[in-house]
């Protein structure tokens, strides 16, 4: 019984910082799933841009070889030095670039997008939901 009472106290105390985090944490999650992070775009929006978009696949070569968005360019961090020149050959200045990786939980697309921006490639967007989003709405 002591264990349960102590556990309840710990849970109660944990509620305080959790509540504060929900109100003030700079990285607090959005209450709605539909809220976009900065630099992120939904598939519907990207599709409305038409064929002018250059898709960048930030996943591994193995995943890319299995299946990818049509006409996508493979560009991941592991093979950046080899793949970036090929990307530059395909990219036209000011052409919109949309980076995707596996899913919502994958961070590679954000990292690749950041590195592209640091290399003066603009505008760059990250596909919300990544490859999973593409596959489910195809």
């Amino acid at each position: 019984m002591t264990a349960v009472r102590q556990a309840l106290w710990i849970l109660l105390v944990a509620l305080v910082p959790a509540f504060l985090a929900s109100a003030f944490h700079p990285k607090r999650p959005a209450w709605s799933e539909d809220v976009l992070q900065p630099g992120e775009e939904r598939l519907g929006t990207v599709q409305s841009w038409g064929d002018s978009v250059l898709w960048v696949d930030a996943r591994s070569r193995k995943e890319f070889d299995t299946e990818h968005v049509p006409n996508a360019v493979l560009l991941n961090l592991e093979e950046w030095d080899q793949l970036f020149p090929a990307f530059l050959d395909r990219w036209q200045p000011n052409q919109k670039v949309v980076v995707y990786c596996s899913s919502l939980a994958c961070h590679m697309s954000e990292e690749v997008a950041d590195r592209l921006r640091r290399n003066s490639v603009e505008p760059v967007y990250v596909l919300k939901g990544g490859w999973e989003a593409w596959k489910s709405k195809r």
Binding site: A3, R5, Q6, L8, W9, I10, L11, A21
Partner: peptide, 21 residues
């Protein structure tokens, strides 16, 4: 925060049984 307080409680030997639960 539950992980932080439970882990901390275990380290400090306070509310040990509750933290273990």
């Amino acid at each position: 925060w539950v992980e932080i307080f439970a882990g901390g409680a275990l380290l400090l030997k306070r509310f040990e049984q509750g933290a273990l639960l």
